[in-house]
Write a protein that binds this DNA or RNA. Structure first.
Lengths: 222, 222
DNA sequence: AAACATCCTGACCACATGGTCAGCTCAGAA
DNA sequence: TTCTGAGCTGACCATGTGGTCAGGATGTTT
């Protein structure tokens, strides 16, 4: 029977059952790699640095991940999966205020919950998105176009100003992403050590207020 | 006297007077380096690649620039100088709409005129701003604080909503920067090859409209 | 022509890179 | 006791890195 040791973190040093070791090490490596890749980009990151960050020998990283490229792609895919996870479908019947605020909130949370992943993504895009072209021109484009259509219908119904929906999506995108990607700048200028939950809540509120008002959406239940 | 040869681009191939050769080569190298650093970050960029991009042997790049680090710092300083060049002082007596629109316009132009520089800056910040800490916590902070004070006075006078001025500055910042830094994403999603002047004008108009309205600023001459 | 400073670069160096691999450890099954 | 297989890793390799340098090319001044 073997009563299946609990695979929790913080238990013994050795001898987990099954592939628990693998699972834990992979998690550790992925986390370390996300940090390093986020900070230095694909080329700038070295397996040595990633291994050091994960507290493992370089060979071990390659043993689990196969190659630098494979590791990087895996991280990107994980980030895209997180992104997809927070996408609920919307319909013309929904309340624009609800939808926009929900969009801002969830995007803000994603950036906050995974700042390294967010920076990793940003670095990839800034570098010309060599690995993500297919994604941008595929899934992501479809997603944006679908939203844009609905926004336009709202405009036609007088529920919001006739603004270009795609630019609106980019506006929300950039504003929310900024606080993760440019954290160093935000902290430096505001002279803080970290952004607290309160700060984030305040920013979210600010963005919601300004953007909703800015495109003429009544602030809840139209 | 020496009638000072015009230092325009496109003149002869050889034998410029004075340090004209030096000037031209340095310009070439800086342009190439900006592109490479922007695409791969500090560590990810190689002198080899920069030299190739500039059409010179690697030794020549080092002959002019001394070191990779020096070259990088010089690029950052050039970008900061460009940034400073477009900063006009403002006063409480100015029209909020004028100031905000001017801010959006000039920031947008900067990003558009120097997209590689903008991306270079972005990559530096994403990586934790190792070279720019002093600048963020110095000049840039002062600049933001000064503006923030004036925005607050405008709010007190009822010329705009009582929004947090620092978040407002970051909002404008991120939105305008986005179209340079995330160009790959914007192009991929909108299925364009480039952003035309018309596109940029439309975006600028959109941002001005939404942001001014969003924080309750009357759209010209309050 | 001789002197001079600037411009230029191939060869080289010590070191870091991504990746391979033979062979180790060690728990559990046969 | 032997075998198996997952986990692991130090040594190694070809290639690329930033940087140095001796020495040549080139043009200007005397």
């Amino acid at each position: 029977m073997t009563p299946r040791k609990t695979p929790f973190a913080g238990d013994g040093e050795k001898s987990e059952a099954n592939g628990a070791i693998r699972e834990r090490n992979e998690r550790e490596i992925l986390a370390a790699a996300e940090r390093i890749f986020a900070g230095h980009g694909y080329r700038g990151a070295s397996l040595q640095a990633i291994a050091h960050e994960a507290g493992l020998p370089k060979s071990n990283v390659l043993y689990y991940m196969g190659s630098k490229r494979g590791l990087y792609v895996r991280l990107l895919e994980r980030m895209m999966a997180r992104w997809n996870a927070l996408l609920d479908d919307i319909s013309v019947e929904d309340d624009p205020a609800d939808v926009l605020e929900g969009f801002i909130r969830s995007k803000m949370q994603l950036s906050r919950r995974h700042p390294e992943g967010s920076r990793l993504f940003a670095a990839e895009i800034i570098g010309g998105a060599p690995f993500l072209q297919y994604y941008l021109r595929g899934e992501m484009r479809d997603w944006v176009q679908a939203r844009a259509l609905i926004f336009e219908q709202w405009s036609a119904r007088g529920l919001m100003d006739p603004v270009d929906p795609v630019w609106l999506i980019f506006l929300i995108w950039s504003a929310t992403q900024h606080y993760a990607d440019f954290e160093a700048q935000v902290l430096g200028i505001t002279d803080k050590d970290t952004l607290t939950d309160n700060d984030v809540e305040a920013i979210t509120g600010f963005l919601t207020q300004v953007i909703l008002k800015g495109c003429g959406v009544a602030p809840r239940q139209a």
